[in-house]
Design a protein around this nucleic acid. Structure first.
Lengths: 188, 188, 188, 188
DNA sequence: TATGAATGAGCCTTCATTCAT
DNA sequence: AATGAATGAAGGCTCATTCAT
């Protein structure tokens, strides 16, 4: 079954809702209210529910661009000659993409069983595969602290994101925290 | 003026409410609702509000034991001969206490301006002082990665707590993550 | 922009709420509770709040007809040839409209700063202007006891309404009290 | 049955409650809350309820002094040589006492059937008798507008009180409004 | 398909009153 | 007699979701 292309007006509404939700998410934190988004988008609640039957579906749609970009960066990390540089690229991308889009953090911090769309599950699987590649290479070269599972790394990055969001002046702390993480997971 | 000891029945209710809240917090996450706690404790809503006028007051009361214990451990870390061991003791205590009591994480992850009681503000100040002592000693011995502020450390530990809570089998991951953090913040 | 006409069902609910509120107000005094009105109207609370976001908005809507009618009568009073008859018409209308609709008394007895709608503020302003016209004409002809401000008159009528509502058999006392007032404010 | 004299401490508490209630009434309007009064008086709620089992009982106790003083003035009015002066004295006293003590207005604006104490009922009866005397004398001398019942006068004064309380700068309006009333009720 | 009115469960909070201490 | 903790009905309001138009 192929998803039928949206009618022009339906597509416009969908984009409008996403743009509005993104703005609200950035400005007011992760308490998305479909009602509120619909009103601000100048669209009926019913329309909002048609496009995004659950809050989760909306969050996934919001995160989709960031997730796609992240996959591209993960592929690049995988291709890089130097194994450790690959790890650094991967984690850096994972960190920055989440900082730039809180919706992505919500997706990555929760289980795949909560995914509303197959698309997100697919992204998740692909990312897992790519990350495994990057990390296995590093492990093969004894660059990674022994005992760290792939999931551990992903969780730790989420943790760093959380740590960064606690205080102010986030931007100037990003590299500091990233270096701590990288040094911490490195062998030796 | 000394706070008068509670009447026996009042003390019983207070404890009942705290125990209930602790159980709910552990089982269902940080969405404490005073009404709900009161109902589950088999106590009138009014009683809950008398003891804890706001959600924050309840969380602080919940966290109080853990916070007190943490202070004791921080003092111990401060007294330890070896500066680096002191740091490890401090961060380990900070990590374990939060894992054991989610209320403590809420207190530590939010601003002091939200504190409802002076007692909590006092704890916070004392912890800050103790931590500064521990960390300054380590800095004086060039044991700590340059550029890390005291707050950074506290935030990073909160981040590790967050990371640990994302997945399952939390206990077996604790030491792994803690080692990553310690290695990451160590100089050299 | 014209206020769009309500959908048929919305209009029905609005009218239902107003009718219910009017009945309750007449029967049980000025303690309007939105929750209660909604329940009695057989309508969800949310519906009540959608139509009347505050108690004040409801009271203003209730008083609207009476206020509009009062404005008509005030215009008529203003146009009447005889200045004193104009005064009598004005005060009589002010008195009778309040007796017929307690909501109007609430509006007139409280400050314009509490108005929820511009419409009510507009009514209030227009009434003030009309009343000033009527009273100025009477003052110019030395028919009004010196020293009485426009506001005094309005307050005194509210006072007479209050006096009438204290006891029973209201109707037969109206003219008596009105005559007392008219004689009292007349010069000489 | 004679009311037993209060123990000294009980009398002290009673006075304390009354003084507090009077202050609150003056400062914050007629929404007396027994709980609140008790707390402000530094007395247990239970004690407040012992002394004043209902809100009404408290209001009556509050009004008692004013009511007693009013009776004295009514007697004086009754004794005055000039019948019309007697009326003026009576109404003036009735007006000023209410302005000075809102509790008195509440008593006078409600039915005798709501009285909690016999004492208040007695006051009410005595006042009625005295007022009847004053007014009958005036009627006998054809000084009073025909058709006005004793109750009408009392209600009208309550209305004037209400009118005075609507706006600001109450004091400077008292005499103006009182003159309106006196002129209005006078024959001719 | 789009709309937005309607719904009502459910949370927060207050306060009059009772009753154990 | 005094105290004040406990109670819980009740009111205010929000918001996720459904459904008539």
């Amino acid at each position: 079954m192929v998803t039928s292309p949206l009618r022009a007006d339906a597509a416009r509404n969908r984009d409008l809702l996403l743009a509005t939700a993104r703005a609200v998410l950035a400005a007011e934190g992760p308490t998305l209210q479909l009602n509120d988004i619909a009103r601000r988008a100048g669209v009926g609640v019913g329309t909002a529910y048609r496009h995004f039957p659950t809050r989760r579906a909306l969050v996934e749609a919001l995160a989709d661009d960031a997730f796609t970009a992240l996959l591209g960066e993960a592929r690049e990390a995988n291709r890089h000659d130097d194994a450790w540089t690959g790890v650094a690229m991967l984690l850096r991308a994972l960190l920055l993409r989440q900082l730039a889009d809180p919706a992505l953090t919500e997706i990555l911090s929760t289980g795949p069983d909560q995914d509303a769309t197959e698309r997100t599950t697919g992204h998740r699987d692909e990312f897992t595969t790519l990350a495994r590649g990057v990390l296995e290479r590093a492990r093969a070269a004894d660059l990674l602290r022994p005992g760290l599972a792939d999931d551990d790394l992903q969780h730790l990055v989420c943790g760093v994101v959380f740590a960064l969001r606690i205080g102010d002046s986030l931007e100037e702390r990003v590299d500091r925290y990233l270096q701590v993480l990288l040094r911490g997971i490195r062998a030796g």
